[in-house]
Design a protein around this nucleic acid. Structure first.
Length: 356
DNA sequence: AATGCGGGGTT
DNA sequence: AACCCAGCATT
């Protein structure tokens, strides 16, 4: 009956299914011993879990914790009711510096939906959770498992890496079939454990601390003996990155005795955020003199930001979207970091003013 | 399937 | 400079 042990990559799927119980047991044991202590792991309050998950979307734990975003938010808006009752500017102000401000607006909206449509109680049904604003497959699974202990799968960047290595699976993790396989596998695992909460946390934390993108510490891995990866560092496979496009952006700087002129975005993106006002199109052929030139990256763009002197006559009236902001109100205003940095440099070089 | 959304950290 | 990070929504 015994046959020669096949090479790792040739092993078949059934072995994985049978190993799910053993694999998850080892992960949970490891996590109970080594798992880190985060504020959102000390509670099962859906609101507290939700806030952490939204803040952590595409944002590293250290950013959320070390700069005090989570603690300040929970102090200012301790529950759905207080958040729902807050104004949008209060909400955006509390999010200032975290980026992806759409998350804050969705969270605000979500709180209002909970109060108005769910009697102030967060729903327990994963499908209902998934339908709330700003909540996708990952966050729905995270809240279902972390807050309610339900056996719902999650796949984030960490887990995609861990699972593709465990199964030695080179299907691109950002392709439709790759995504499906990851979620199927994550579901299989979470249904094989009696502690979905610990299992989901363990998978993420394994990816964060052991099964790292580069130089994974396989010697320290609690599930090394379950892992089929031949060359862990070559996984996961991802599709090509979009090409970087260079973009020019021109704004201007006006300071009066009443403050700095800023423009509030009103379009479909960056709505509600403040920025240095755009240089009107008619001035872009022969722009006023340059006060500052800087570059920043945003998604697939490399933006060269030029800050110019005031175009035209400074006595003109400005559109509804523009406002003179007193200096002492600047720091609480939600403003994308590139503009904030530029503004700080402009004010510093003027010598007499400082932000904060 | 692609793209926009921001920012910061690591290598 | 490239890559990564507790993703989601829109098109």
């Amino acid at each position: 009956m015994p046959t020669p042990k096949p090479s790792k990559s040739a092993q078949q799927k059934p072995a994985q299914a049978e190993g799910a119980a053993a694999l998850t047991a080892d992960l949970v044991t490891w996590f109970r011993k080594e798992g880190k202590d985060y504020p959102w792991r000390r509670t099962h309050d859906p609101y507290a879990v939700l806030v952490s998950e939204i803040m952590l979307q595409q944002t590293q734990i250290a950013t959320v914790l070390d700069r005090g975003f989570y603690a300040r938010w929970m102090e200012k808006f301790p529950n759905f009711q207080t958040l729902a009752a807050a104004s949008e500017s209060e909400v955006l102000g509390a999010w200032q510096g975290l980026g992806y401000y759409r998350r804050a607006r969705n969270l605000h909206k979500l709180a209002q939906v909970i109060v108005s449509d769910h009697g102030g109680l967060f729903p327990r049904d994963p499908e209902v959770i998934r339908s709330l604003p700003g909540i996708g497959p990952y966050t729905a699974g995270a809240i279902s498992s972390f807050a309610f202990g339900l056996a719902e799968p999650i796949v984030d960047g960490n887990i995609a890496r861990v699972l593709s290595r465990l199964d030695n699976d080179a299907t691109p993790v950002d392709s439709t079939p790759g995504i499906k396989r990851l979620w199927d596998r994550a579901k299989e695992l979470v249904q094989a454990t009696e502690d979905p909460r610990a299992l989901n946390s363990a998978l993420m934390e394994l990816g964060q601390t052991i099964c790292k993108p580069a130089k994974p510490v396989c010697d320290a891995c609690p599930v090394h003996h379950h892992c089929l990866a031949d060359e862990p560092e070559t996984l996961p496979v991802k599709g090509a990155r979009p090409e970087i496009t260079e973009v020019t952006e021109r704004v201007f700087f006006l300071r009066t005795g009443q403050g700095i002129l800023l423009e509030q975005e009103t379009g479909s993106r960056r709505t509600g955020l403040w920025k240095l006002p755009a240089l009107p199109e008619e001035f872009s052929v022969k722009p006023p003199s340059v006060l500052l030139k800087t570059t920043y990256g945003i998604t697939r763009y490399k933006v060269t930001l030029w800050v110019h002197e005031v175009p035209g006559k400074p006595t003109q009236t400005w559109p509804e979207s523009h406002r003179l902001i007193p200096l002492d109100e600047l720091s609480a205003l939600p403003m994308p970091s590139p503009y904030r940095r530029a503004l700080e440099r402009l004010l510093a070089s003027s010598g007499e003013f400082r932000l904060e």
